[in-house]
Amino acid sequence: MLQLENLEVYYGSIRALNGINIRVELGEIVTMIGANGAGKSTMIRAISGLIRPRSGKVFFENEDITTVPPHQLVEMGICQSPEGRRIFANMTVRENLELGGYVHHRNKRQIREDYDRVLSLFPRIKDRLNQSAGTLSGGEQQMLAIGRALMSRPRLLMLDEPSLGLAPIMVRQIFDILQDINQQGVTILLVEQNAWQALRIAQRGYVLETGSVVMENDTQSLLADEGVKNAYLGE
């Protein structure tokens, strides 16, 4: 479904991604784990068109999307919940969700269906629809960010560190919901530092270190791997 070929990204003269190759198949949850500064967020930004890669290609359903601008990618079915949530703090929860569905705003029925679906996935934000989003707790904000991304009815959902700054119990809850979302037919690319939680729900994983993919395997093998254990699982 999604394929990166030799993707290289530079910030000025600094190389952030060192020719990475990954692929995500339809219906999978794939996770990309790695430490701070490994290039995880850069990869998400490059896929979603927020930065231009210097070389390499991105394919979505066999179509070259390397230079497609971000708003068209959302129409094509790729949406992301960005790092640090980036919800619209001064708008209400409802308005945040409406904006998430903006690319389909002419299709009222679809918007309503998605709206109901998101609220049934995240009952906690249902009670807070008219509250301004900045007043939500961190976990609720993350739920809102995911819900907002789902409003565009993506076939591929990319999540950038959904566990950032959240209490462990909240992380667990959100990751369980991600599994539900995946079972509803959304392919997920999950970028995480919280390797244990990410590997718990994913089928396959990549390990990114200083801009290069150093390991690629199914999650069982990654969880059993000594190097991964030492570096990311803290055992």
Binding site: L50, V74, Y102
Partner: peptide, 8 residues
């Protein structure tokens, strides 16, 4: 950036 990511 968030607006971009939402397809605006």
């Amino acid at each position: 950036i968030a607006a971009d990511a939402m397809g605006v």
